[in-house]
Nucleic acid binder design. Structure first.
Lengths: 215, 215
DNA sequence: CATAATTGGAGAGTAGAACTATCCGTCAGT
DNA sequence: ACTGACGGATAGTTCTACTCTCCAATTATG
């Protein structure tokens, strides 16, 4: 399989494939001569994975590279790769040090304590949660911050199933790959369903309001 | 309050404020003379809102503009603004027409039917959900697609509280603003908590595995 | 087997996003 | 009166994610 076939198979332009090769997202093909290379099914799968993470998951090329490096590195455990994938889907901001941030930090620590979660401030979610809560306080959106436990409970319900879905019966690389897909696309799916669920509730209420007005 | 004060108050550079004014994210100040303007607290709040949506929520400037236009337009209902905010947080892709897409479409329709949700294919979540499911099938990640109902249930648990949190006792613009913040930052918060919840479950399992090995 | 098309690799070029810098003619504070 | 913003407009910058162009070496084709 040469680069043109790879392109035809996946719908990704030859130029883009070359770009991904250069950027190290796609491993080089097996050289058949000093300036000729052959690609295989693994490259097709990898290319599809890249497109999924970038197009559907919204990851950057740099983020995708980091995640794929974790997929490939046999020294990276499933648990560590989980953190890498999570970090890739979260928006990073340089932290501010103020009262709101301090209170947010407290709130997150209290939540984790209350929930009995085994995690710490090195988890990418920790910093993000603190940032979001601090921002909410600065904006005066305490109402949403009050939903902290509602969100936590919902995520507690989801997490075991997600982790369960990544069975470790195949080889490590496949498992990590599956997990990465689960984290990134699962998040996108959840956001989509959240949108519909909220629209549904909102529609119910609008309908109710209309009924109230009519009645 | 002049532009320099606005900058000092919010920590946003004068150049960026001018940029936001140009891009229509920030309404122009009240002119006090042909080339002098005055800004007020509303501008400070708006600027903080912009930074929150962009930095913490990860919205683009274009997406932020669309959302803010909905906030400002008195003809846009709370329910419609909800859709606008949701659309802004979801990754858009040009849809592919294949078997996987057709099956995904079916799966989403069935889910909505099963759940009794009041929503339709015009909801931004619909297309996103179909895209994600189709992508998952193409990647062979059926396991995650099997979590569809788990995700749906979790979002059903969250949605009423989120909608509830946006009380409509204040003026419309404030309500819409609150809702936008809720959708965008609430989503970021949920992702962060999901990360910690999963890490916790994964740590439990690693611990269990270690215990198994030891015992 | 001559020749046309492809390939791999490197480098430069491009488009869009989000600023940032520079001017310049006012205008406000001292 | 003069120094330092201010507003407005235009141009320039940086970063990202490609895309284009070359070119010598292969590979496919009539």
């Amino acid at each position: 399989m040469r680069i043109g076939d790879l392109s035809r198979e996946t719908g990704v332009s030859v130029a883009s494939i070359k770009y991904y090769l250069r950027e190290g997202l796609l491993p080089p093909g097996e050289r058949t001569s000093p300036n000729q290379a052959r690609y295989d099914e693994a490259h097709v799968r990898r290319l599809r994975l890249i497109r999924a993470l970038v197009d559907v998951g919204g990851l950057s090329i740099a983020g995708t590279r980091t995640v794929l490096a974790a997929v490939e590195d046999p020294h990276v455990s499933l648990h560590d790769a989980l953190g890498t994938a999570q970090a890739a889907v979260m928006t990073r901001t340089e932290p501010v040090e103020d009262d709101a941030a301090a209170r947010a930090e407290q709130a997150v620590a209290a939540l984790i304590e209350r929930r009995g979660w085994i995690t710490n401030e090195r988890n990418p979610g920790w910093r993000t949660a603190v940032d979001v809560l601090a921002t909410l306080e600065r904006l005066g959106g305490e109402k949403v911050a009050g939903l902290l436990d509602v969100y936590a409970e919902a995520m507690e319900a989801v997490a075991p199933h997600e982790v369960e879905a990544v069975v470790v019966d195949e080889d490590r690389e496949r498992s990590v790959e599956r997990m990465v897909v689960g984290i990134v696309l699962g998040g996108a799916l959840m956001t989509a369903l959240r949108g519909m669920a909220e629209a549904s509730v909102s529609a119910h209420r609008s309908g109710q309001a209309a009924a109230d007005r009519a009645g």
